[in-house]
Design a protein around this nucleic acid. Sequence first.
DNA 1: CCAATATTCCAGAACTCTATGGAACAATAG
DNA 2: CTATTGTTCCATAGAGTTCTGGAATATTGG
Lengths: 222, 222
Amino acid sequence: MEGREAKDRLYEQFARAAKATANPKRIELLELLAQGEHTVDALARATGMGVTNTSSHLQVLRGARLVETRKDGTKVFYRLAGDEVAAFIVALRDLAHARLTEVDSIVRDYFDARDALEPVDRTELVDRASRGEVVVLDVRPRDEFAAGHIPGALSVPLEELDDVLARLPKRAEIVAYCRGPYCVLAPQAVERLRAKGYKARRLADGMPEWRLAGLPVAVGEE
Amino acid sequence: MEGREAKDRLYEQFARAAKATANPKRIELLELLAQGEHTVDALARATGMGVTNTSSHLQVLRGARLVETRKDGTKVFYRLAGDEVAAFIVALRDLAHARLTEVDSIVRDYFDARDALEPVDRTELVDRASRGEVVVLDVRPRDEFAAGHIPGALSVPLEELDDVLARLPKRAEIVAYCRGPYCVLAPQAVERLRAKGYKARRLADGMPEWRLAGLPVAVGEE
DNA sequence: CCAATATTCCAGAACTCTATGGAACAATAG
DNA sequence: CTATTGTTCCATAGAGTTCTGGAATATTGG
């Protein structure tokens, strides 16, 4: 066979991208970065890894050109190198969800009986939000909200949920969203809201999926 | 952090799927399987690997539930476990193509000046084929054609191209397709067709992409 | 039942990957 | 200039991966 060498080189490159994602911690890093840029230190804390180890995982991701950096003073900010990376992570999650029953069972055991939260899909949310029927809450940390959020959403990090409740009309219908389908923030928020008598549901996925779907994204503080 | 253990388990599963694809040979196997089921032996020959090694790669893929098997007599046929697997491979290729400039340079060097082949996209092909303006050639091996092809396409493995030419009207416009955007069969066919004076172009991608786009697929011999 | 064929299992050598801790290297504040 | 902070580099031990041959297993045809 003639084209063997070229084929090998090509598949080598495909595998290079795949290898960079073939580690649980690196997938976690990529998901965090899909929310917006973060420093090494912040990523280390969020993932529970040592800084050294975090840095070296980030080097691997950079070696495969999946992430890029920006330096500001003494801090280095990492971000995804492009939307294709987020799209790929979504495809990977979908694959794992479809083929590995373990994913489902983990979600059931540890996260929540997801159906009970009656997830809202994106089109339904767009529809109802445009008619002012729902209040949309972004329950991620404030800096992730600033890096990109659903237009019109309120930034309500989980810790501040109780404070904000006072300002919400008791009859309001609420939709909470966070980082994605496997993020626990929105489910927790919904649970607490319901306990207080609100009519609350969650968005089926989160911010990166919203952006990838080509829907409008607002940036900056509230 | 409370949900650490659950998170770890979840990312573990995602990584399990990613790890299974994190090897050039396994990606090649998956791409071949995206064309239809194959025996271990056929896959070993197509990839240039030893049978033992091929088998063990296939075991890895099966361990991650990306492929399934069917046994018929002494042969074992492997196939993709679902469309999500093909979708994932496409996402991986797109990622590599978008982020790794090396992919582009390999394609340029070894495959062909791709723009010169004026690739036709799927919608254009559907359109023109429905009006009978083009002859569609499937230049993959005959068994892959049988496993699924574009309705109305002629099965013309590359070796038989010259024989078939005699039966084609000299004025016909031809579109050839094969396994996907990085498959060399269609480009080679187009080149030979053009050398003989035909007006030939290639489909931008191939069969698995056609199926994933939800377009109709015919099965069986011609 | 025996021989032939197709596939899988197993053991070993070379290699790569992960996590860790300590050293090195900016950039900033004082 | 010095101390501090944030990040990266380096060495290392332990674990996992890939490929190779040879043995084991299963199915079919005589």
